[in-house]
């Protein structure tokens, strides 16, 4: 449904963000991967009716976007585009859960609506965290970090190869489907039979390409082993980054900061 060219452009844009040079970009990718994991786990560990307590977690994406010099609008747009998918399932909550939990003046808010909103906030936070991780780290570095954290090398190599050839193959797929679209005069979809041979064709070409790549690898002494370069350094800055964020997330998980703040503010204002 999305145009291939559009997807590819978006992909390249996101990919190019990782070439930035900021203090965050320079951190060892392992620290960034681990912090993102702690973030996501703490966020999703909230109960289903939790809403306010999740809000302070937006501090994390906000700070990283700031320090990492990322285009906030672009990332917000990407996140916003994905939230409707979470909503599709969340929208059933108000239907099934009609117990009134909060009375805001004349407005009775049911548990369903709260948990629905909670799901959307969760989605925004977790999706945002993933995109930001990618934007400040870059896919190859994430793979290497995961490999150093114990991911099998065969899978790391697979990820790197996939990543490299996504660009090539998606362009090829785009050309094929453009060639088809130009001759189908407005019929959007593709008949099954034509689809089968179109994909079959693409598959065969892919297969031949794999054979050529294999030749090129053999020609340069490939024997089945992959050697990777450049050791990362997990130093003091990384440790501070990791521990600092983790401590904050856990504190925010245990303390409802907005409520504390709210109580404090309203208390003072009285």
């Amino acid at each position: 449904m999305l145009s291939i060219d559009g997807v590819l452009l978006d992909f390249k844009r996101l990919d190019s963000l990782a070439t930035g040079d900021s203090a965050i970009h320079r951190l060892d990718p392992r620290a960034k991967v681990l912090v993102t994991l702690v973030f996501i786990v703490t966020v999703v560990s909230f109960g289903r009716y939790e809403l306010t307590a999740m809000v302070p977690f937006f501090i994390f994406p906000a700070v990283i976007i700031g320090l990492g010099n990322l285009p906030a609008g672009y990332i917000a747009r990407k996140v916003a585009l994905l939230c409707p998918f979470a909503l599709i399932v969340a929208i059933f909550n108000p239907v099934f859960d009609r117990e009134v939990l909060v009375q805001l003046g004349p407005l009775a808010v049911t548990g369903g609506w709260i948990s629905c909103a909670s799901i959307v906030v969760r989605a925004a936070l977790t999706v945002g965290a993933a995109i930001i991780l990618l934007a400040v780290t870059g896919f190859p570095a994430i793979c290497r970090a995961l490999e150093r954290l114990g991911m099998p090398q065969a899978f790391a190599v697979q990820l790197l190869f996939l990543y490299r050839y996504i660009f090539v193959l998606t362009e090829e797929g785009g050309r094929v489907s453009r060639a088809r679209a130009l001759r189908s005069y407005g019929n959007r979809g593709l008949g099954m039979k034509a689809y089968g041979s179109l994909l079959g064709n693409l598959l065969l070409r892919t297969w031949l390409r794999a054979e050529r790549i294999h030749m090129a690898m053999l020609a340069r002494g490939f024997t089945g082993e992959f050697h990777t370069r450049r050791e990362f350094r997990f130093g003091g800055r990384e440790l501070v980054y990791f521990l600092g964020w983790s401590a904050l997330f856990i504190t925010l998980r245990l303390q409802n900061a907005p409520r504390l703040l709210g109580a404090l503010v309203t208390g003072i204002s009285r």
Binding site: F139, P140, L160, F161, Y163, R164, Y165, V168, R209, R212, I213, M215, A216, M217, A219, R220, G221, F222, T223, E225, H227, R229
Partner: peptide
């Protein structure tokens, strides 16, 4: 040293450095 026709077949590593280093490392 064999240079293939389509550089996309020859350059399979994530960065130029990794690619040029592939042979010597092997």
């Amino acid at each position: 040293g064999m240079v293939f026709q389509d550089p996309d077949d020859q350059l399979f590593m994530p960065t130029v450095y990794d690619d040029v280093a592939f042979g010597p490392m092997n």
